[in-house]
Design a protein around this nucleic acid. Structure first.
Length: 337
DNA sequence: AACTCGGGGGG
DNA sequence: CCCCCAGAGTT
């Protein structure tokens, strides 16, 4: 089985992707690697690229991140989703400033937002620790290699694949191996239409041998989404300011700004002018949003979670995606500008 | 083991 | 419409 690692590393040396968070060389700069891994959770590389560059410009090192206010951190993250990741980065930055960078899997694992995958990836990339990082790519590659028929989201199956990954790990080159597996999963061993003909390890792959690569890995079915009706009031004050409400910290879209529920402002939802009705889809939920424009003669007072903001001052706020969509509709209709 | 937590790209 | 993406935390 050592041949698997040799073939994969040889392929990686030639075709490895040139990604910005790889440019700090090896061993990897811990701050840059940590930011990248945080952004990449459940998020495609192409999506992360612009966020990553802006982030490093705004927070060049861990000290700058630790010193920044949370709202500035969330504003940099807006649109990326899973906003807890930004909170965790912010909180962990202050721990790192106090205690220094981790150098082991267990050390990384203590930081908030660092789970099994990130701890292994960061320890191997930054300190050469011999740990196998299992992300979605690795699970798919390993399931196909070994012909694993069990659902990979089951802990027992993951444990089997983790053991396989550990057994394949080439001594002294764990960081390269982890990245090579992920690149293979992203470019060759893709979820759909795997390019087995171009695969450097097809000679070791049970799924390729039986022509079943496209049928693996098996995943458990997802349960249906909950549908909720959400009313959003684009409340417009006489001076042109808009009313925004901050979502509770521990809630869905926690800490982001949305157009408020009409009831929060004492408005009759039906009284507004229809602006835009659309569906915003989350992983496990779907909001049927009815956005209406409400001209307000006497604006209700501001509160901790309620602000009246000039349209040109919205840039510094972390706006949820549905907020941006309604804002764009209001601008198109020339209600605001 | 099941649920929660975003948003977008691509078949 | 569907799937899945360089997962982690909570219950």
């Amino acid at each position: 089985m050592a041949a698997v690692a040799a073939d994969l590393l040889a392929w990686f040396a030639q075709t490895g992707r040139d990604l910005p968070w790889r440019r700090s060389g090896r061993p990897r700069d811990p701050y840059q690697a940590w930011v990248a891994e945080s952004m990449l959770q459940q998020t495609r590389v192409e999506t992360v690229l612009p966020y990553y560059d802006r982030w490093l410009a705004a927070f060049p090192d861990v000290g700058a991140l630790a010193a920044a206010p949370l709202d500035a951190v969330l504003a940099q993250w807006q649109g990326l989703g899973y906003y807890r990741r930004a909170r965790h980065l912010h909180a962990a930055a202050r721990t790192v400033v106090a205690d220094g960078w981790p150098h082991t899997v267990a050390g990384w694992r203590v930081l908030p937002g660092v789970g099994p995958y990130m701890a292994a990836a960061l320890a191997s990339l930054c300190d050469g620790v011999e740990a196998a990082a299992l992300d979605g790519n690795a699970l798919r590659v390993l399931a196909r290699l070994s012909g694993e028929e069990g659902a990979v989201d089951l802990p027992a199956v993951r444990a089997r694949l983790a053991a396989l990954a550990t057994s394949l790990l080439p001594s002294g080159r764990a960081g390269e191996w982890n990245e090579a597996v992920m690149d293979l999963g992203a470019t060759i061993c893709r979820p759909r239409k795997p390019r087995c003909g171009d695969c450097p390890v097809r000679g070791h792959c049970l799924a390729a041998a039986s022509g079943r690569a496209a049928d693996l890995p098996v995943r458990r079915p997802r349960r249906p989404q909950v549908v909720e009706d959400v009313a959003m009031a684009v409340a417009l004050a006489p001076d042109g300011r808009l009313c925004l409400q901050r979502r509770p910290d521990d809630a869905l879209l926690g800490g982001l700004w949305v157009f408020p529920d009409p009831a929060r402002l004492g408005l009759d939802p039906a009284a507004g002018w229809p602006l835009l009705a659309f569906t915003h889809v989350f992983t496990h939920r779907r909001w049927r949003i009815d956005g209406r424009l409400h001209p307000i003669a006497v604006p209700p007072p501001e509160a901790d979670d309620l602000r009246w903001v000039r349209p040109d001052a919205l840039d510094g706020l972390a706006l949820a995606a549905p907020t941006r969509r309604l804002l764009a509709a209001a601008q198109r209709a020339q209600y605001i500008w």
